[in-house]
Design a binder for these strands. Sequence first.
DNA 1: TCCTAATCGAGACGGTACGTCGCGTCTTCGC
DNA 2: GCGAAGACGCGACGTACCGTCTCGATTAGGA
Lengths: 221, 221, 221, 221
Amino acid sequence: MTGRRGRPRSAAVDWAVEQATLDLLARVGYHGLTIEAVAARAGVGRPTVYRRWPTKDDLVVDVLSRAVPVLADPDTGDALRDLELLASEVLERLVAAGVGPVVLAVLGAAVDRPELASRLEERYLSPRLGVLGEVIARGVRTGRVRDDLDVTVIRDLVLGPLVYRVLLSGRVWDRAERAAATAAVRRAIAAPGVAEDAPPSPAGKPVTAPPRRRRRASSPS
Amino acid sequence: MTGRRGRPRSAAVDWAVEQATLDLLARVGYHGLTIEAVAARAGVGRPTVYRRWPTKDDLVVDVLSRAVPVLADPDTGDALRDLELLASEVLERLVAAGVGPVVLAVLGAAVDRPELASRLEERYLSPRLGVLGEVIARGVRTGRVRDDLDVTVIRDLVLGPLVYRVLLSGRVWDRAERAAATAAVRRAIAAPGVAEDAPPSPAGKPVTAPPRRRRRASSPS
Amino acid sequence: MTGRRGRPRSAAVDWAVEQATLDLLARVGYHGLTIEAVAARAGVGRPTVYRRWPTKDDLVVDVLSRAVPVLADPDTGDALRDLELLASEVLERLVAAGVGPVVLAVLGAAVDRPELASRLEERYLSPRLGVLGEVIARGVRTGRVRDDLDVTVIRDLVLGPLVYRVLLSGRVWDRAERAAATAAVRRAIAAPGVAEDAPPSPAGKPVTAPPRRRRRASSPS
Amino acid sequence: MTGRRGRPRSAAVDWAVEQATLDLLARVGYHGLTIEAVAARAGVGRPTVYRRWPTKDDLVVDVLSRAVPVLADPDTGDALRDLELLASEVLERLVAAGVGPVVLAVLGAAVDRPELASRLEERYLSPRLGVLGEVIARGVRTGRVRDDLDVTVIRDLVLGPLVYRVLLSGRVWDRAERAAATAAVRRAIAAPGVAEDAPPSPAGKPVTAPPRRRRRASSPS
DNA sequence: TCCTAATCGAGACGGTACGTCGCGTCTTCGC
DNA sequence: GCGAAGACGCGACGTACCGTCTCGATTAGGA
């Protein structure tokens, strides 16, 4: 055993720096975030920050992955509904006052920073999208989700429209648009034969036995 | 009449700066772009750049909107197919060696820069998405696209998955995934009764009377 | 005759620029004077200023030499007294609110600008010190001033202490100090036998040893 | 104990910057001196220079006061002679190749920069003129210098002509002029009864008309 | 009466220096 | 050895003026 000589690192420092980072991210955004400011606000020397996080990106990703809890699998019995709930949850977080904008900012910054992108993927996205993958797999297994689509493609179809909307316009779907979009995505990924509309009932009835018919508009005849 | 006093601005300068900006964007990305470097590479004084574009964002958006041609309406007769072609075209551009990555970078940077975002929206996105809107409207009119979806929602559904994929993973769908995703989106937005697969015929027959049947896989029991 | 074709230069412009220069000199000092500001304040294009005065120095010296009237020879009959009056007058002007500080500033600036120094000498100082030289010569001729001192040395002795004081300390002699200094300089340059103190009488009656001669121009013999 | 936290400032940097400043002052004069150039020539970052000397003036005055040694009191026994020696020394330095012109330039620049002037006074002039003041006081005490003149006035009389000459004309007295001027100043400030001419002999043997008296204090009749 | 040419304002242009900010590294002290 | 404090070389920022250069519009002569 080496035995770790000298003064051990202070956990309080870690905490202070992370808090400072979150505060500042919320306040000035990713591009306005400065190691200098972080250190100052944490009451810490700049080299102390660098000692733990060699780059701003490391710091931010680390802080984010610690601050944002992993999504929980709703597991209502209906995998399609689970997906919708997860998507809804994702959207909620993206828009939420706290870390939401920060996550977006970092995603944005990652675009032309492959370093950041991969670290983000590894430390933040994968753990979080894992649940989605599981739910999708379950959906395929239980015959609720089409089996001719790659898992990642389904993910893109579920999250893409929603993220795209927020990223580009900053605005978000209203209640009606959201319902329509949800139904549309369901059409895109639901296995053939699955009823077109999700049951609006809050605690989704178990499935397997498909609801007989529930079209929105009248049939074309 | 006003008569435009003083020495007129040199078009050559505009050109040189725009070229330099594109070059550097491709080389070092948005976050690595420096007005200083732009001016140097354009053989121009720094103040000259600032005189025309007060901020880096102004410059970049202006350059992009000038450099990227607006999408043309394919108008094959089948609006659904038109949408697919447009999406395909958008994807192509996003990935393309030239401005593609640049556009992505700027989109990313815009996330936590509302200023940039709105300028981008106004000068870059709207003109380009306009075509998409028209095609969608035509689709609705001709009964190829559902009429219970807002135009912007459809846009999100068409572009979202694709952009999300590129933005987040940097990777892109392979041929098969692309086909599957395309079909899925079609399911999401096609009007009821419209055949599931797009007719591969290049110059789509006019619509109204929906093509009777054209499934890819067998019907769902 | 060439005949000077084209539009003649406007005298109004000359005037406006000179006024602007004086104003600004008084306001911001020599080192704070900018051609830009001069032009703006004169309501004139910058090139118009450059057309007439190639450098800031040219402009300033020209303006000064036009603005500050040449000292008049008091010619009281007593050359020593004349010198004192002249010195007094010089001091007055140096301290005066208007051009005084400006002259000092330019003198100061001239120190490490030989160009400016020589132009200043030629256009400003010489004409003004000429009178002093004449008075000194007259003093020597009339036996009031020592003849073993070079004219320029006398000039240095008369003006030096006074200018030095103002230049370095900004402060100026009070009444008593001034009288004492005047008397001291008189001791330094007065011909032997001339009474030590200047008569305090306002309209200098000759003193003790009256000046032998009083003519201004007639031959000495 | 304060304990002086953080990395101490490098003496090498001080030294390098001061050298660079002196070099450049000698080369391009005060008005041509650039912080940028100083930093470059010292091999130092610009902010490092600003950290120590907030303004160009601070830098220059500091450098000068460090570079020019304070005059030593000759103390030959004859205060009048001491004054002449000091004046001579001052002149020498003003004209000397090294800092001489620099001092002049700064003096000049100080004219319309009260900030600079007061700093110059405080950090440069007073320490240096202190000796002069002491010698003058001694002269008064020993009866060699008139007691009806303020110390500062005497200083003006001693240094004024000399500085005036150098400042304005750049030229300097030749041997004869210098002797004459010296004698003149002596007349101006010597106590009554003191022999008129200073002994030009290097080690002050009395000359021509040897001063009858050489006592230090007694009254002249 | 036109023509021609210099001058006027305005302001763009390539530059240089400004003084500031943040970077990431280093060096010192005191726990 | 860690941690704060902060100096260091560096590079970019956005601004102010520089002195030169086009411009269109005056404004006189001379033809």
